[in-house]
Design a protein around this nucleic acid. Structure first.
Lengths: 232, 232
DNA sequence: TCAATAGTGTCTCTAAGACACTATAAG
DNA sequence: CTTATAGTGTCTTAGAGACACTATTGA
Protein backbone atom coordinates (compact mmCIF):
# COMPACT_ATOMS: atom_id res chain seq x y z
CA UNK A 1 0.00 0.00 0.00
CA UNK A 2 1.14 3.55 -0.65
CA UNK A 3 3.38 5.36 1.78
CA UNK A 4 2.16 8.20 3.90
CA UNK A 5 2.03 10.60 0.98
CA UNK A 6 2.49 10.28 -2.75
CA UNK A 7 4.88 12.62 -4.51
CA UNK A 8 3.45 15.12 -6.95
CA UNK A 9 4.03 14.02 -10.49
CA UNK A 10 4.72 16.15 -13.55
CA UNK A 11 5.85 15.73 -17.12
CA UNK A 12 8.32 18.32 -18.41
CA UNK A 13 9.53 18.69 -21.95
CA UNK A 14 12.62 20.15 -23.47
CA UNK A 15 11.54 21.16 -26.96
CA UNK A 16 14.46 21.72 -29.30
CA UNK A 17 14.56 23.26 -32.70
CA UNK A 18 17.15 24.85 -34.94
CA UNK A 19 16.69 28.47 -35.88
CA UNK A 20 19.21 30.73 -37.59
CA UNK A 21 21.90 28.08 -37.28
CA UNK A 22 21.52 27.91 -33.52
CA UNK A 23 19.86 25.33 -31.32
CA UNK A 24 16.84 26.77 -29.54
CA UNK A 25 14.70 25.55 -26.69
CA UNK A 26 11.14 26.47 -25.83
CA UNK A 27 10.56 28.06 -22.43
CA UNK A 28 7.38 29.16 -20.73
CA UNK A 29 7.03 32.03 -18.29
CA UNK A 30 5.30 31.12 -15.07
CA UNK A 31 2.50 33.59 -15.17
CA UNK A 32 0.32 32.72 -12.20
CA UNK A 33 1.18 34.92 -9.23
CA UNK A 34 -0.37 32.37 -6.88
CA UNK A 35 1.91 29.65 -8.07
CA UNK A 36 5.46 28.70 -7.12
CA UNK A 37 8.36 30.33 -8.95
CA UNK A 38 6.14 33.04 -10.37
CA UNK A 39 7.79 35.07 -13.11
CA UNK A 40 10.61 32.65 -13.85
CA UNK A 41 11.08 30.81 -17.12
CA UNK A 42 10.55 27.06 -17.07
CA UNK A 43 10.37 24.06 -19.36
CA UNK A 44 6.82 23.48 -20.52
CA UNK A 45 5.24 20.91 -18.29
CA UNK A 46 2.09 19.75 -16.64
CA UNK A 47 0.49 17.23 -14.41
CA UNK A 48 -0.42 13.77 -15.51
CA UNK A 49 -4.17 13.64 -15.72
CA UNK A 50 -5.23 10.19 -14.73
CA UNK A 51 -8.61 10.68 -16.31
CA UNK A 52 -7.31 11.98 -19.64
CA UNK A 53 -3.94 10.33 -20.27
CA UNK A 54 -3.82 6.67 -21.07
CA UNK A 55 -0.08 6.46 -20.55
CA UNK A 56 3.06 8.51 -19.99
CA UNK A 57 3.81 9.22 -23.62
CA UNK A 58 0.29 10.47 -24.14
CA UNK A 59 0.58 12.75 -21.18
CA UNK A 60 3.77 14.16 -22.63
CA UNK A 61 2.12 14.59 -25.99
CA UNK A 62 -0.84 16.39 -24.48
CA UNK A 63 1.35 18.73 -22.46
CA UNK A 64 3.38 19.47 -25.55
CA UNK A 65 0.46 20.21 -27.83
CA UNK A 66 -0.85 22.70 -25.31
CA UNK A 67 2.28 24.72 -25.99
CA UNK A 68 2.93 24.12 -29.65
CA UNK A 69 0.91 22.61 -32.44
CA UNK A 70 3.92 21.24 -34.26
CA UNK A 71 4.45 17.69 -35.38
CA UNK A 72 7.29 16.55 -33.21
CA UNK A 73 9.42 13.66 -32.16
CA UNK A 74 9.24 12.75 -28.47
CA UNK A 75 11.63 10.66 -26.42
CA UNK A 76 11.84 10.08 -22.71
CA UNK A 77 15.08 11.21 -21.07
CA UNK A 78 14.50 10.09 -17.50
CA UNK A 79 12.92 10.99 -14.22
CA UNK A 80 14.06 13.37 -11.56
CA UNK A 81 12.61 13.51 -8.12
CA UNK A 82 13.45 14.72 -4.71
CA UNK A 83 12.14 16.47 -1.66
CA UNK A 84 13.85 19.77 -2.40
CA UNK A 85 13.16 20.53 -6.01
CA UNK A 86 9.85 22.19 -5.35
CA UNK A 87 9.02 24.20 -2.25
CA UNK A 88 5.72 22.37 -2.04
CA UNK A 89 7.23 19.01 -1.22
CA UNK A 90 8.26 15.76 -2.90
CA UNK A 91 8.06 16.24 -6.64
CA UNK A 92 8.87 13.88 -9.43
CA UNK A 93 9.25 15.00 -13.00
CA UNK A 94 9.40 12.72 -16.01
CA UNK A 95 11.53 14.53 -18.55
CA UNK A 96 11.09 14.20 -22.32
CA UNK A 97 12.82 15.88 -25.13
CA UNK A 98 11.03 16.87 -28.30
CA UNK A 99 12.57 17.68 -31.66
CA UNK A 100 10.64 20.09 -33.78
CA UNK A 101 11.07 20.52 -37.49
CA UNK A 102 12.48 23.81 -38.62
CA UNK A 103 9.42 24.64 -40.68
CA UNK A 104 7.11 24.25 -37.77
CA UNK A 105 8.61 27.01 -35.73
CA UNK A 106 7.25 29.56 -38.15
CA UNK A 107 3.85 28.72 -36.73
CA UNK A 108 5.12 29.98 -33.42
CA UNK A 109 4.58 28.51 -30.00
CA UNK A 110 1.58 28.99 -27.82
CA UNK A 111 -1.88 27.62 -28.10
CA UNK A 112 -2.72 28.50 -24.54
CA UNK A 113 -2.48 31.99 -23.16
CA UNK A 114 0.74 31.79 -21.18
CA UNK A 115 3.81 33.52 -22.50
CA UNK A 116 6.31 31.27 -24.20
CA UNK A 117 9.40 31.92 -26.28
CA UNK A 118 12.27 30.24 -28.09
CA UNK A 119 15.66 30.82 -26.52
CA UNK A 120 18.99 30.03 -28.04
CA UNK A 121 20.43 27.19 -25.99
CA UNK A 122 23.23 29.35 -24.60
CA UNK A 123 20.81 32.03 -23.51
CA UNK A 124 18.53 29.48 -21.92
CA UNK A 125 21.35 27.90 -19.96
CA UNK A 126 22.39 31.26 -18.61
CA UNK A 127 18.91 31.91 -17.18
CA UNK A 128 17.80 31.20 -13.66
CA UNK A 129 15.05 28.72 -14.44
CA UNK A 130 12.23 27.64 -12.17
CA UNK A 131 12.62 24.65 -9.85
CA UNK A 132 15.47 22.39 -10.98
CA UNK A 133 14.79 23.01 -14.65
CA UNK A 134 18.36 24.07 -15.27
CA UNK A 135 19.36 20.54 -14.41
CA UNK A 136 16.59 19.07 -16.56
CA UNK A 137 17.54 21.21 -19.54
CA UNK A 138 21.15 20.18 -19.11
CA UNK A 139 20.21 16.50 -19.02
CA UNK A 140 18.05 16.79 -22.13
CA UNK A 141 20.72 18.69 -24.00
CA UNK A 142 23.40 16.16 -23.08
CA UNK A 143 21.19 13.36 -24.27
CA UNK A 144 20.67 15.12 -27.57
CA UNK A 145 24.39 15.71 -27.95
CA UNK A 146 25.26 12.12 -27.16
CA UNK A 147 22.72 10.73 -29.58
CA UNK A 148 23.87 13.11 -32.28
CA UNK A 149 27.32 11.53 -32.07
CA UNK A 150 26.10 8.04 -32.89
CA UNK A 151 22.64 8.26 -34.47
CA UNK A 152 20.79 10.05 -37.25
CA UNK A 153 18.43 11.68 -34.75
CA UNK A 154 19.05 15.27 -35.90
CA UNK A 155 17.27 14.63 -39.19
CA UNK A 156 14.13 15.06 -37.09
CA UNK A 157 15.01 18.72 -36.73
CA UNK A 158 15.08 19.25 -40.47
CA UNK A 159 12.30 20.64 -42.65
CA UNK A 160 10.54 18.47 -45.22
CA UNK A 161 13.40 18.77 -47.71
CA UNK A 162 16.92 19.92 -47.01
CA UNK A 163 20.45 19.81 -48.34
CA UNK A 164 23.35 17.85 -46.91
CA UNK A 165 25.06 21.13 -46.09
CA UNK A 166 22.09 22.20 -44.00
CA UNK A 167 22.03 18.88 -42.22
CA UNK A 168 25.71 19.16 -41.46
CA UNK A 169 25.18 22.62 -39.99
CA UNK A 170 22.53 21.22 -37.67
CA UNK A 171 24.90 18.50 -36.53
CA UNK A 172 27.59 21.09 -35.95
CA UNK A 173 25.20 23.29 -34.04
CA UNK A 174 24.36 20.48 -31.65
CA UNK A 175 27.87 19.09 -31.33
CA UNK A 176 29.22 22.60 -30.92
CA UNK A 177 32.13 21.89 -33.19
CA UNK A 178 32.91 21.78 -36.89
CA UNK A 179 32.70 18.51 -38.76
CA UNK A 180 34.67 17.31 -41.74
CA UNK A 181 32.51 17.60 -44.85
CA UNK A 182 33.64 14.45 -46.61
CA UNK A 183 33.39 12.26 -43.54
CA UNK A 184 29.97 13.60 -42.78
CA UNK A 185 28.63 12.95 -46.26
CA UNK A 186 30.12 9.47 -46.41
CA UNK A 187 28.50 8.69 -43.10
CA UNK A 188 25.05 9.91 -44.10
CA UNK A 189 25.27 8.22 -47.45
CA UNK A 190 26.27 4.96 -45.81
CA UNK A 191 23.27 5.10 -43.52
CA UNK A 192 20.95 5.13 -46.52
CA UNK A 193 18.25 7.06 -44.75
CA UNK A 194 17.73 9.90 -47.21
CA UNK A 195 16.43 10.02 -50.75
CA UNK A 196 17.00 12.60 -53.44
CA UNK A 197 13.92 14.63 -54.20
CA UNK A 198 15.02 15.34 -57.75
CA UNK A 199 15.21 19.00 -56.89
CA UNK A 200 18.01 21.45 -56.38
CA UNK A 201 18.18 24.35 -54.04
CA UNK A 202 19.44 27.59 -55.57
CA UNK A 203 20.94 29.98 -53.09
CA UNK A 204 23.38 32.24 -54.77
CA UNK A 205 26.15 29.77 -55.41
CA UNK A 206 26.32 26.24 -56.76
CA UNK A 207 22.90 24.61 -56.34
CA UNK A 208 22.65 21.83 -53.77
CA UNK A 209 20.65 18.63 -54.02
CA UNK A 210 17.54 18.51 -51.89
CA UNK A 211 16.87 15.35 -49.92
CA UNK A 212 14.07 14.08 -47.82
CA UNK A 213 13.93 11.38 -45.16
CA UNK A 214 13.11 8.01 -46.68
CA UNK A 215 9.61 6.87 -45.84
CA UNK A 216 9.73 4.29 -43.09
CA UNK A 217 12.69 5.87 -41.34
CA UNK A 218 12.61 5.06 -37.66
CA UNK A 219 16.12 5.87 -36.63
CA UNK A 220 19.64 4.81 -37.46
CA UNK A 221 22.56 3.93 -35.22
CA UNK A 222 26.10 4.20 -36.51
CA UNK A 223 28.70 1.95 -35.06
CA UNK A 224 31.34 4.55 -34.58
CA UNK A 225 31.11 7.88 -32.86
CA UNK A 226 31.30 11.10 -34.80
CA UNK A 227 34.28 12.90 -33.38
CA UNK A 228 34.62 15.90 -35.60
CA UNK A 229 37.45 18.05 -36.77
CA UNK A 230 40.66 18.21 -34.84
CA UNK A 231 40.50 14.72 -33.44
CA UNK A 232 43.73 13.48 -34.86
CA UNK B 1 -2.38 22.42 -9.03
CA UNK B 2 -2.57 18.64 -9.21
CA UNK B 3 -5.10 16.92 -11.39
CA UNK B 4 -8.07 15.05 -10.04
CA UNK B 5 -5.97 12.14 -8.85
CA UNK B 6 -2.27 11.43 -8.70
CA UNK B 7 -0.95 8.19 -10.10
CA UNK B 8 0.55 5.69 -7.73
CA UNK B 9 4.29 5.74 -7.87
CA UNK B 10 6.73 2.86 -7.48
CA UNK B 11 10.40 2.13 -8.00
CA UNK B 12 11.23 -1.24 -9.54
CA UNK B 13 14.66 -2.72 -9.96
CA UNK B 14 16.10 -5.28 -12.31
CA UNK B 15 19.03 -6.73 -10.40
CA UNK B 16 21.47 -8.56 -12.63
CA UNK B 17 24.33 -10.82 -11.75
CA UNK B 18 26.34 -13.51 -13.46
CA UNK B 19 26.20 -16.99 -12.03
CA UNK B 20 27.53 -20.17 -13.63
CA UNK B 21 28.29 -18.33 -16.86
CA UNK B 22 24.69 -17.20 -17.22
CA UNK B 23 23.08 -13.84 -16.61
CA UNK B 24 20.63 -13.97 -13.73
CA UNK B 25 17.99 -11.61 -12.49
CA UNK B 26 16.48 -11.34 -9.03
CA UNK B 27 12.73 -11.88 -8.73
CA UNK B 28 10.44 -11.69 -5.75
CA UNK B 29 7.31 -13.71 -5.22
CA UNK B 30 4.28 -11.65 -4.37
CA UNK B 31 3.34 -13.26 -1.11
CA UNK B 32 0.50 -11.20 0.23
CA UNK B 33 -2.87 -12.80 -0.62
CA UNK B 34 -4.59 -9.45 -0.14
CA UNK B 35 -2.45 -7.79 -2.72
CA UNK B 36 -2.66 -7.62 -6.51
CA UNK B 37 -1.01 -10.33 -8.61
CA UNK B 38 -0.65 -12.62 -5.59
CA UNK B 39 1.61 -15.59 -6.22
CA UNK B 40 3.32 -14.23 -9.32
CA UNK B 41 6.99 -13.38 -9.60
CA UNK B 42 7.89 -9.72 -9.93
CA UNK B 43 10.85 -7.39 -10.02
CA UNK B 44 11.69 -6.17 -6.54
CA UNK B 45 10.05 -2.82 -6.01
CA UNK B 46 8.40 -0.54 -3.58
CA UNK B 47 6.76 2.79 -3.03
CA UNK B 48 8.61 6.01 -2.73
CA UNK B 49 8.41 7.08 0.88
CA UNK B 50 8.25 10.84 0.91
CA UNK B 51 9.24 10.92 4.55
CA UNK B 52 12.23 8.60 4.20
CA UNK B 53 13.67 9.08 0.73
CA UNK B 54 15.43 12.32 -0.08
CA UNK B 55 15.43 11.61 -3.80
CA UNK B 56 14.73 9.00 -6.44
CA UNK B 57 18.10 7.29 -6.33
CA UNK B 58 17.85 6.95 -2.58
CA UNK B 59 14.43 5.41 -2.89
CA UNK B 60 15.83 2.89 -5.35
CA UNK B 61 18.73 2.16 -3.07
CA UNK B 62 16.45 1.63 -0.09
CA UNK B 63 14.16 -0.69 -2.04
CA UNK B 64 17.16 -2.63 -3.23
CA UNK B 65 18.79 -3.08 0.16
CA UNK B 66 15.56 -4.49 1.49
CA UNK B 67 16.04 -7.36 -0.92
CA UNK B 68 19.76 -7.85 -1.01
CA UNK B 69 22.60 -6.55 1.10
CA UNK B 70 25.08 -6.47 -1.74
CA UNK B 71 27.17 -3.55 -2.84
CA UNK B 72 25.73 -2.73 -6.22
CA UNK B 73 25.76 -0.32 -9.09
CA UNK B 74 22.45 1.41 -9.81
CA UNK B 75 21.33 3.21 -12.94
CA UNK B 76 17.96 4.56 -13.98
CA UNK B 77 16.50 3.01 -17.11
CA UNK B 78 13.33 5.01 -17.48
CA UNK B 79 9.75 5.35 -16.37
CA UNK B 80 6.71 3.42 -17.40
CA UNK B 81 3.22 4.45 -16.62
CA UNK B 82 -0.29 3.86 -17.77
CA UNK B 83 -3.81 3.29 -16.70
CA UNK B 84 -3.79 -0.44 -17.43
CA UNK B 85 -0.60 -1.80 -15.95
CA UNK B 86 -2.08 -2.29 -12.53
CA UNK B 87 -5.68 -3.25 -11.83
CA UNK B 88 -5.78 -0.60 -9.12
CA UNK B 89 -5.50 2.32 -11.49
CA UNK B 90 -2.92 4.70 -12.94
CA UNK B 91 0.52 3.46 -11.94
CA UNK B 92 3.91 4.83 -12.73
CA UNK B 93 7.06 2.86 -12.17
CA UNK B 94 10.56 4.26 -12.29
CA UNK B 95 12.78 1.42 -13.44
CA UNK B 96 16.39 0.98 -12.39
CA UNK B 97 18.85 -1.70 -13.16
CA UNK B 98 21.39 -2.88 -10.64
CA UNK B 99 24.57 -4.81 -11.30
CA UNK B 100 25.73 -7.06 -8.52
CA UNK B 101 29.23 -8.43 -8.13
CA UNK B 102 29.57 -12.13 -8.56
CA UNK B 103 30.95 -12.59 -5.06
CA UNK B 104 27.99 -10.97 -3.47
CA UNK B 105 25.51 -13.50 -4.67
CA UNK B 106 27.00 -16.09 -2.32
CA UNK B 107 25.44 -14.06 0.46
CA UNK B 108 22.09 -14.79 -1.11
CA UNK B 109 19.19 -12.44 -1.53
CA UNK B 110 16.59 -11.62 1.05
CA UNK B 111 16.83 -9.45 4.09
CA UNK B 112 13.12 -9.25 4.45
CA UNK B 113 10.87 -12.24 4.77
CA UNK B 114 9.40 -12.48 1.30
CA UNK B 115 10.53 -15.21 -1.02
CA UNK B 116 13.07 -14.18 -3.60
CA UNK B 117 15.24 -16.07 -6.05
CA UNK B 118 17.77 -15.70 -8.81
CA UNK B 119 16.52 -16.77 -12.24
CA UNK B 120 18.57 -17.26 -15.33
CA UNK B 121 17.56 -14.52 -17.72
CA UNK B 122 15.98 -16.97 -20.16
CA UNK B 123 13.93 -18.59 -17.45
CA UNK B 124 12.83 -15.22 -16.14
CA UNK B 125 11.71 -14.04 -19.54
CA UNK B 126 9.64 -17.15 -20.02
CA UNK B 127 7.71 -16.52 -16.82
CA UNK B 128 4.39 -14.76 -16.55
CA UNK B 129 5.47 -11.88 -14.36
CA UNK B 130 3.25 -9.59 -12.32
CA UNK B 131 1.89 -6.36 -13.80
CA UNK B 132 3.93 -5.25 -16.80
CA UNK B 133 7.17 -6.50 -15.35
CA UNK B 134 7.90 -8.58 -18.41
CA UNK B 135 8.16 -5.34 -20.33
CA UNK B 136 10.27 -3.73 -17.62
CA UNK B 137 12.65 -6.67 -17.50
CA UNK B 138 12.96 -6.56 -21.24
CA UNK B 139 13.75 -2.84 -21.19
CA UNK B 140 16.38 -3.26 -18.49
CA UNK B 141 17.99 -6.17 -20.29
CA UNK B 142 18.12 -4.30 -23.57
CA UNK B 143 19.73 -1.35 -21.88
CA UNK B 144 22.34 -3.65 -20.37
CA UNK B 145 23.00 -5.27 -23.74
CA UNK B 146 23.32 -1.94 -25.51
CA UNK B 147 25.69 -0.52 -22.95
CA UNK B 148 27.77 -3.68 -23.03
CA UNK B 149 28.42 -3.08 -26.71
CA UNK B 150 29.98 0.34 -26.17
CA UNK B 151 31.00 0.70 -22.52
CA UNK B 152 32.95 -1.12 -19.82
CA UNK B 153 29.84 -1.46 -17.68
CA UNK B 154 30.05 -5.25 -17.25
CA UNK B 155 33.16 -4.94 -15.07
CA UNK B 156 30.66 -4.03 -12.38
CA UNK B 157 29.43 -7.61 -12.47
CA UNK B 158 32.88 -8.99 -11.71
CA UNK B 159 34.25 -10.08 -8.34
CA UNK B 160 37.06 -8.15 -6.66
CA UNK B 161 39.69 -9.79 -8.84
CA UNK B 162 39.17 -11.62 -12.09
CA UNK B 163 40.88 -12.76 -15.26
CA UNK B 164 40.40 -11.36 -18.73
CA UNK B 165 38.95 -14.69 -19.78
CA UNK B 166 36.31 -14.42 -17.09
CA UNK B 167 35.48 -10.88 -18.10
CA UNK B 168 35.14 -11.95 -21.71
CA UNK B 169 32.74 -14.70 -20.70
CA UNK B 170 30.58 -12.16 -18.92
CA UNK B 171 30.50 -9.98 -22.00
CA UNK B 172 29.59 -12.99 -24.11
CA UNK B 173 26.88 -13.97 -21.69
CA UNK B 174 25.24 -10.57 -21.94
CA UNK B 175 25.75 -10.13 -25.67
CA UNK B 176 24.58 -13.67 -26.26
CA UNK B 177 27.30 -14.31 -28.79
CA UNK B 178 30.97 -15.26 -28.88
CA UNK B 179 33.60 -12.55 -29.06
CA UNK B 180 37.01 -12.62 -30.66
CA UNK B 181 39.65 -13.05 -27.95
CA UNK B 182 42.32 -10.81 -29.38
CA UNK B 183 39.94 -7.97 -30.21
CA UNK B 184 38.43 -8.15 -26.79
CA UNK B 185 41.74 -7.98 -24.99
CA UNK B 186 43.01 -5.15 -27.16
CA UNK B 187 39.87 -3.23 -26.40
CA UNK B 188 40.06 -3.70 -22.64
CA UNK B 189 43.76 -2.94 -22.60
CA UNK B 190 43.20 0.21 -24.61
CA UNK B 191 40.59 1.39 -22.13
CA UNK B 192 43.18 1.29 -19.36
CA UNK B 193 40.62 0.62 -16.66
CA UNK B 194 42.14 -2.48 -15.07
CA UNK B 195 45.33 -3.07 -13.14
CA UNK B 196 47.27 -6.27 -12.63
CA UNK B 197 47.09 -7.54 -9.07
CA UNK B 198 50.41 -9.34 -9.32
CA UNK B 199 48.62 -12.62 -8.82
CA UNK B 200 47.81 -15.51 -11.08
CA UNK B 201 44.81 -17.74 -11.03
CA UNK B 202 45.55 -21.46 -11.22
CA UNK B 203 42.71 -23.49 -12.58
CA UNK B 204 44.04 -26.65 -14.11
CA UNK B 205 45.65 -25.23 -17.20
CA UNK B 206 47.91 -22.27 -17.88
CA UNK B 207 47.52 -19.75 -15.05
CA UNK B 208 45.79 -16.49 -15.90
CA UNK B 209 46.65 -13.03 -14.65
CA UNK B 210 44.27 -11.59 -12.11
CA UNK B 211 43.15 -8.00 -12.53
CA UNK B 212 41.13 -5.57 -10.51
CA UNK B 213 39.32 -2.39 -11.49
CA UNK B 214 41.57 0.63 -11.17
CA UNK B 215 40.65 2.81 -8.24
CA UNK B 216 38.73 5.83 -9.44
CA UNK B 217 36.99 3.96 -12.24
CA UNK B 218 33.69 5.62 -13.04
CA UNK B 219 32.92 4.15 -16.40
CA UNK B 220 34.41 4.02 -19.87
CA UNK B 221 32.86 4.59 -23.27
CA UNK B 222 34.46 3.10 -26.35
CA UNK B 223 33.98 4.87 -29.61
CA UNK B 224 33.18 1.85 -31.63
CA UNK B 225 30.61 -0.84 -31.03
CA UNK B 226 31.64 -4.36 -30.10
CA UNK B 227 30.17 -6.51 -32.81
CA UNK B 228 31.55 -9.92 -32.04
CA UNK B 229 32.46 -12.93 -34.06
CA UNK B 230 30.97 -13.49 -37.46
CA UNK B 231 30.57 -9.87 -38.38
CA UNK B 232 32.62 -9.95 -41.49
C1' DT C 1 36.68 37.36 -63.84
C1' DC C 2 35.84 36.12 -58.52
C1' DA C 3 33.42 34.54 -54.42
C1' DA C 4 30.76 31.07 -52.47
C1' DT C 5 29.13 26.82 -51.73
C1' DA C 6 28.56 21.78 -53.54
C1' DG C 7 30.61 17.81 -54.13
C1' DT C 8 34.79 14.31 -55.06
C1' DG C 9 39.45 11.74 -54.88
C1' DT C 10 42.43 9.77 -52.23
C1' DC C 11 45.79 9.33 -48.46
C1' DT C 12 46.42 8.15 -43.64
C1' DC C 13 45.10 6.32 -39.30
C1' DT C 14 42.57 3.68 -35.73
C1' DA C 15 40.57 -0.07 -34.05
C1' DA C 16 37.87 -4.29 -35.00
C1' DG C 17 37.66 -9.19 -36.97
C1' DA C 18 40.22 -13.41 -38.42
C1' DC C 19 43.13 -16.74 -37.38
C1' DA C 20 47.29 -19.06 -36.65
C1' DC C 21 50.68 -19.16 -33.62
C1' DT C 22 53.35 -19.74 -28.95
C1' DA C 23 53.31 -20.42 -23.66
C1' DT C 24 52.40 -22.74 -19.39
C1' DA C 25 49.96 -25.33 -16.49
C1' DA C 26 47.75 -30.43 -14.93
C1' DG C 27 47.50 -35.18 -15.51
C1' DC D 1 52.97 -37.05 -24.39
C1' DT D 2 47.87 -34.64 -24.48
C1' DT D 3 44.47 -31.36 -23.30
C1' DA D 4 43.11 -26.95 -21.85
C1' DT D 5 43.34 -22.36 -21.37
C1' DA D 6 46.31 -17.92 -21.60
C1' DG D 7 48.18 -14.86 -24.32
C1' DT D 8 50.57 -12.87 -28.91
C1' DG D 9 51.68 -11.63 -33.97
C1' DT D 10 50.04 -9.95 -37.78
C1' DC D 11 47.02 -9.55 -41.86
C1' DT D 12 42.69 -7.63 -43.54
C1' DT D 13 38.97 -4.47 -43.40
C1' DA D 14 35.62 -0.61 -42.30
C1' DG D 15 35.09 3.75 -41.64
C1' DA D 16 36.76 8.33 -39.77
C1' DG D 17 39.83 12.59 -40.38
C1' DA D 18 42.72 15.51 -43.53
C1' DC D 19 42.97 18.08 -47.27
C1' DA D 20 43.37 19.31 -51.87
C1' DC D 21 40.94 19.13 -55.78
C1' DT D 22 36.99 19.99 -59.31
C1' DA D 23 32.07 21.78 -60.38
C1' DT D 24 28.40 25.08 -60.79
C1' DT D 25 26.05 28.89 -59.74
C1' DG D 26 25.46 34.51 -59.20
C1' DA D 27 27.40 38.92 -59.41
Amino acid sequence: MPGPQMPTLTVDISVFTVQDDALHVLLVKRSNPNTAEYGKWALPGGYILTDKDQNLDEAAYRVLTEKTQAKVFLEQVGSFGNADRDPRGWFLSVLYFALEKQTDIKAGPGRDTSESRWFAIDEARALDLAFDHEQLLQAAFERLQNKTAYTALPVRLMPETFTLGELQKVYETIMEKPLEKKSFRRRIEGADILEYTGQQQHAGSRPASLYRIKPGFTGYTFNRLLEGKGTR
